[in-house]
Design a protein around this nucleic acid. Sequence first.
DNA 1: GCATGGAATGATAGCGCTATCAAACTAAAT
DNA 2: ATTTAGTTTGATAGCGCTATCATTCCATGC
Lengths: 349, 349
Amino acid sequence: MSSKIPKTSPRLTHRVTLKDVAHDLGVGMMTVSRALNKPHLVAEPLRTRILEAVARIGYVQNRAASGLASGGVPLIPVILPTLHHSVYVPLLDGLYSVLPQAGFEILVSCTEYLVGTEETLVTNLLGWNPRGIILSGIDHTPSTVARLKQAKIPVVEVMDTGGIPVDRSVGFSHEAVGITAANYLASLGRRSIAYIGTLAELDSRSVRRIHGFQNALKTLGLPEGLVESSDGPSSIGLGRQLLIRLLERQPGTDAIFFGNDDLAAGTLFECQRRSIKVPEQIALLGFNDLEIASEVTPAISSIATPRREMGRLAGELLISHFEGKTASVERSIDLGFRLIERGTTKIQL
Amino acid sequence: MSSKIPKTSPRLTHRVTLKDVAHDLGVGMMTVSRALNKPHLVAEPLRTRILEAVARIGYVQNRAASGLASGGVPLIPVILPTLHHSVYVPLLDGLYSVLPQAGFEILVSCTEYLVGTEETLVTNLLGWNPRGIILSGIDHTPSTVARLKQAKIPVVEVMDTGGIPVDRSVGFSHEAVGITAANYLASLGRRSIAYIGTLAELDSRSVRRIHGFQNALKTLGLPEGLVESSDGPSSIGLGRQLLIRLLERQPGTDAIFFGNDDLAAGTLFECQRRSIKVPEQIALLGFNDLEIASEVTPAISSIATPRREMGRLAGELLISHFEGKTASVERSIDLGFRLIERGTTKIQL
DNA sequence: GCATGGAATGATAGCGCTATCAAACTAAAT
DNA sequence: ATTTAGTTTGATAGCGCTATCATTCCATGC
């Protein structure tokens, strides 16, 4: 025995492998593999013995080996902008409500709106040979798009519509949101309407929202909406700060549309501190319908976005793709949005 | 053409492999692999040519193959309770501030406090052969612990201290938090002190906090603290509801300690709606020092927890382990916490 | 001139698993 | 009994990469 030194290095301590389980039972590796992955292909008595042995020995499938051998990993990477506010969490919820039960694992990554991050992430994530991928937004660098197409896997872009999706997209029109916001605030008789939001370099959705907003104001013959923005992540405190800056620049502002509800909440709190009457003096319209919007007093009017629904649908699109019945669905799905009137735009009885 | 049917199935379309790059340049695969993973081992002119070819051809490393061949994946899975509130996001920030630059990818999973999830997740995640793993909490099923030990990789448990860590732990004592809260509220002259929180089946940290809280009250000779809890995820709205239930059960409550700041905010909002004076009639003490606590008026006193620091330190512990200099550090690190007095416990000038 | 040694590159053998095909066995049909 | 078809199991060949060892090529020093 021990005649030769093994060719391979003494790796991290020897792990239990399929072979160990197979030897233990005196069956072939393939049978064990089947019992685990395609149980219906193994006859009952054997299958039970195998599963029992697997549990007893503590065998855990090596995902790298499995993925390599089978040419792909049952994994769906999701690239979100950030988790620093709760905006994208419902999207994950939606995904989690359908993908795991179809046998897919979800891998969450965030760009934090940093330039170049998406491309790096996409490249890395595709290295796993995932079965599909979910991105947020519809703006990607050309080489990112090339990579995605080269990967020949289904791609779903969420959170936005418009343009030609790489593969499929599920979202809503941010431009339309901006228009709706402007028209609504104008319909309340407001004339000096501003926008408060964050404006990270890569946040083209905000840009489109602002674009729609400004255009609608122009169409209405109203003065150009002042945009007060910062590049930090959206937060309550930032909403406070931006209001202060805004009022310095344009004290007569009588309505504000926000890029996110936490900003609106910050502004509301600052207004209360300064005894500015909301909505009498300034009307506030938030975005995303986060929990805080409905919980403060007065409750913040907001534009609700179908984030959970988007996640669910994105997941379902992928699943139906894998089941081969994908042709029927249109490539770009617009889920719309909903304006919710609350106390910061309407005087409550 | 098409003389033989290939032995292997026509996988997902042929991907660019290392071999393709090597052939393109007329060099060995190993040299390409080195140029990518250990650049210093490849002489300058060749290295540049290789990297150029890689970019031109669009080669992406197959992570499964790489992980299989090298006996592990530069991946650190992190198992958190939930992302449904922003409590754990700073922890991720801390991890992201150190692990990626050391070459590790982070894989986030959540248990959502569901029974059995952690064990399943640990099993699955270990299947990737990660180099280390980060868990939250110090309570795991025996078989989870067995699996972790069997994996022979560094494990860091965050968010809690006490007991014997599987490997290492970084956190603070929830029991001590409970004691501090009770003592502090009592020191303000409060006598009917309650607790409002969530109490998911697996949230042993809440249990320990409540335990410390109740014990401290007993030591002080105060009536047992009423616990009003729910098993849903913590939220502003839930804080409102739980206050309503609490006041029905014990109208004379003059101080409340919360399991999370969003609950405290909900209670504050409900108090304001009901014209209950805070802090005069009821003092509120939150937990975690979330942004909302400092932004509402009156600002909510809270117990700040070092979540970002925990993440950073957990990451650094792993890194130093890989660098072999791990012996010096104690196995369980207590980072403590900090009581922040604000308007909901002290009348502001 | 010829060892000596280091640096750069390449050939080879797996890593642990699954797809494939072949074999063995069973049951039904002829 | 013998074919036919279906079911169950096993042997084998990679998946694409990296660890290892062998080889080649130079510059040194004696």
